[in-house]
Amino acid sequence: MPEGRLDRYPGYDVLRKRDTPSWNDVTRRVIDARLAISDRPRFLSETDWATLQAICERVVPQPPDRPAIPVAALVDDKLCRDDGDGYRNAKLPRLREAWQRGLRAIDAEARVAHGTGFVALDGDAQDALLRAAKQGDLRHPAWEGMPSDVFFDARLLRDIVHAYYSHPTAWSEIGFGGPASPRGYVRMDFDRRDRWEAVEAKGGDEAEVRRRNQRVG
């Protein structure tokens, strides 16, 4: 899948900073708990879960050469905790209801258009269906009046992307410094990194950068 993806921060693992002054106790507790979330549903039904997993693979595709971030499980965990945003567009039902309805509607749209569930579609067909949702073009009765575009932006994209980028693996991928307390940062200027920050590869220097990133801590 994501072949030729540029790894700008080879060898950088934000978790290597776990036992440095960059992490405080509460952060360690919280991140440990997140890493312990297993890749199976606790809130969603098996069918909805399968659809969600397939959607996650389209929205935040992952490389095969590292342990995958359990994105669907992180979204399911949010639903399990019913951890809402504190507001919702009037056109949407509440968090859990919106997700259940949206997943079923997307699956129903797939069955109408292709005669098979969303999970069984190939990637391009899945993308096309998601794009139609984004455009607000999907009107299957299973949406029960919920506009597909509002669901797509306010719930689907937001929650999936949020889940992916709340995982340390994603932080390492983008060279984010990760948790920082009590230790923050010193070097603030252009092109500066503290020695507890990721080294960026500029092309052709990956081996050396990898070695340096393994010392970051």
């Binding site: 009590p182 940062y185 503290d194 507890w196």
Partner: peptide, 10 residues
Amino acid sequence: QMGGWRNWSQ
């Protein structure tokens, strides 16, 4: 400073 001498590296 935050973290005092324990956070000496900063």
